[in-house]
Design a protein around this nucleic acid. Structure first.
Lengths: 139, 139
DNA sequence: TATATAGTTTATAATAATTCTAAACTAGAA
DNA sequence: TTCTAGTTTAGAATTATTATAAACTATATA
């Protein structure tokens, strides 16, 4: 797949979510999704990496806005593992995580690697929105 | 069980964890553990409830210190469900949680209500510290 | 029992992540 | 081309938490 083609794809994708394909959003799309492996990040790390090569500066507020917009549009998955900081994952398929307490890094666990043979019924009037397994690991 | 007896018990408990049984810690013990049902709280709510009846004031810093000390002593379990805020649970037995996105409330799921028939092997050199299932629910 | 000391509490300041604000900018409809 | 609603931005505000340093206290031991 040729990378220049992806731009058009991202424009489509954004439009389909009622998000205007702005320069900043497209840059962030390319940064996040033009890669083969899934990418785990915090807003802090994304901001640093995006703004490293002084070429285009995207403000921190926009990084926050965009990550929030992409998450509610379903392009990103938010994972809570650590006090005071949210992690995001470009892998939005149903899957779970290892969280390394030492390095503070997330690793995907493929959904087939965890099998739940029993899941509780939600309280009356409530529906299950999602089910997340986090396995904390350490040395 | 007579409540006045619990004080002695808490003194023992604290001593066994190398925590001096101070007035504040004993107050917090009584507030947290002199109850039949498990209790879920944030530092904010604990602080409000503890300091409601103007009798004894415990500073916010002490609430933070104590919750931290009780968590590392294993009297409390920390549950991460929400950006920017930690939840704690007086139920330290292995169990899981419903997190209601609307009311932002936690409910215990008894460990027998969830069965994992397959769990991944941790990466080389790492050990599993704990495994937590959070089921997000909504209307 | 008195006292020295290490642990604890406290008010307050500092920090860190995130959200808010309001003015300037821009995509895209008309 | 022009208008407007959506977007970006710098910076201020907010919120949860942690750090600081002085006052206090539990408790070991003289």
């Amino acid at each position: 797949m040729i990378i220049s083609d992806n731009l058009k794809m991202y424009v489509q994708k954004l439009r389909s979510s009622n998000l205007r394909p702005t320069k900043q959003r497209l840059n962030i799309c390319q940064f996040l999704f033009d890669r083969k492996k899934t990418f785990h990040f915090t807003v802090e790390t994304l901001n640093k990496k995006i703004n490293k090569n002084g070429a285009t500066k995207i403000s921190l507020a926009t990084i926050y806005n965009t990550v929030e917009a992409f998450t509610s549009a379903g392009y990103l998955k938010e994972i809570l593992t650590s006090k005071n900081k949210s992690y995001y994952d470009t892998n939005i398929k149903s899957h779970h995580h290892f969280y390394d307490e030492g390095s503070k890094e997330l690793t995907d666990i493929h959904y087939s690697q965890i099998k739940l043979s029993k899941v509780p019924v939600p309280p009356k009037g409530k529906k299950i929105k999602n089910l997340e397994v986090v396995i904390r690991i350490q040395k």
